[in-house]
Design a protein around this nucleic acid. Structure first.
Lengths: 261, 261
DNA sequence: AGACTTAGTTTCGAATAGTGAAACCAAACG
DNA sequence: CGTTTGGTTTCACTATTCGAAACTAAGTCT
């Protein structure tokens, strides 16, 4: 029915609105949202009221503008702590950052997009969640390709359908075919490159984090610049990165079973 | 109708379930949730299905257990980045941590409870979100009392109604009257103490962060131990803490107006 | 001041979406 | 092989939600 995303039920609509408010990145007034959403005035009004009443949004009575509520932050804490990967990977990321002196990314797949879950920055020791939580494209980032390469066919298909294939740089793989060929190469090689495909001057080496059963749980990458190093030099570190990815995977898996309370 | 919390509409119920899953702090199976929630089987099932379909939950097909979804992490990132206080306060917290060498907390009020939004730890430079996002009681923490003291009457009443007044230590103010008297003292003094009221050996000095109009936006605290310092010594730093709180408030406020896009 | 937008809130009958007891299916158990 | 446990589906009933339209409260303009 709806032109876009099939928001099922009231809950879907409410979450849709929530995303919308989040998308603005600043407090928004009723009419701002009304313009963007194609829900009728009264409906939107009720939706906003419900969300506010539930603490997912807050309405500043002075300016009459909505912002994301604290309940989300609370939920988020749980989500992050629970997301099998992030808390477990923490010490390993620290280690990897220390060893390499480069920027480290930990990412997961989210509907064809890359969601950065944690990050270590060469300069600023532990800078997380100010950057982590962001989303990026899958087809032109190291972590994205590393995950795509090991996705089961149906999931890959679903993910591919959501790629924009925008050409960010001259090196961007801007077609489905080019990407598929690259994914094949990644599987052969065992790790993915980002050869300035997303941003000029930025290169990285990424490996998937996979469960023993082969399920892709996330990806880990070491990022640097062409000014500082080369792909080959980064590649020399691939075995170490893979090793750490394996450790994270192992620990993440062994976490599930002893949950008998 | 419902014995407990008045969850209005389907959205309320869905969010309720979400909280529930978050509360477990680990992947949970259908029946775990069913036991906890008092929704009928079929209803809960549909709710979970919707949430999963929406990406707020993920269902691990292997173990058949639900966990919080990535969409939540994405939303949370936005919530944190947008929560007028947290991102602005970042550099100030760093500064305060450097100056005092103690643990710093930034908190907001969430339905009568204290929600820790950011944290600096004396030992580990920047440890956030692993601790931040947690909630704690308001009546027996420094930040909690600092905020309560400056809440408008109705909000204070609502918050008080939600305090458990559990006696954590011999110093806990375990009654409404004792707390009200203390709040009065805090207003006189301009800052709040935590004199081992929540945990033995832990003391802190907290100040509210208030808008020019007087609205309580959050609170800031410096925490230490009785082994290392005394309340009086902490009190000597109160002016500096207040100063920083004022700076954060000012910057947070000046953020709203230039939003004309 | 009076007329005319603009922004947000409320109403109310019709339509839809949510409800939940009960039936059902599939494993695991004894 | 009958039974329990854990999860999914059905379906008639009804409470919720829908959304056009009416309404209120500020601004603006002339």
């Amino acid at each position: 029915m709806g032109a876009e995303g099939h928001a099922d039920g009231t809950v879907g609509k409410a979450l849709d609105v929530l995303d919308m408010v989040a998308g603005f990145g600043r407090p928004v007034r009723f009419s701002d949202i009304l313009a963007q959403a194609d829900y009728p005035k009264a409906t939107l009004y009720r939706l906003l009221q419900t969300l506010t009443h539930q603490g997912m949004l807050t309405l500043d009575p002075e300016t009459g503008s909505y912002a994301l509520g604290v309940r989300l932050v609370r939920l988020a804490h749980a989500a992050w702590a629970q997301s099998s990967l992030a808390p477990i990977a923490r010490p390993y990321l620290d280690e990897l950052a220390r060893e390499t002196g480069e920027t480290i990314h930990l990412a997961q797949m989210d509907l064809g997009q890359v969601l950065y879950v944690d990050k270590r920055n060469a300069a600023k020791p532990v800078e997380m969640f100010a950057q982590a939580g962001k989303v990026g494209p899958a087809y032109c980032t190291g972590v994205g390709k590393a995950m795509l390469a090991y996705l089961p066919p149906e999931a890959l298909e679903a993910a591919l359908a959501r790629q924009s294939f925008h050409r960010f740089t001259p090196h961007t793989l801007a077609s489905r075919e080019a990407l598929l060929a690259e994914l094949e190469a990644i599987r052969k090689r065992g790790h993915a490159w980002d050869a300035e495909e997303h941003e000029t001057g930025i290169i990285c080496c990424a490996v998937p984090i996979r469960s023993r059963a082969g399920r892709v749980m996330g990806a880990l990458s070491v990022t640097s610049t062409t000014a500082r190093t080369t792909l080959d030099a980064l590649g020399a570190q691939a075995p170490m990165i893979k090793d750490i990815a394996a450790k994270i995977a192992a620990e993440a898996e062994s976490w599930r079973f002893p949950e008998q309370v």
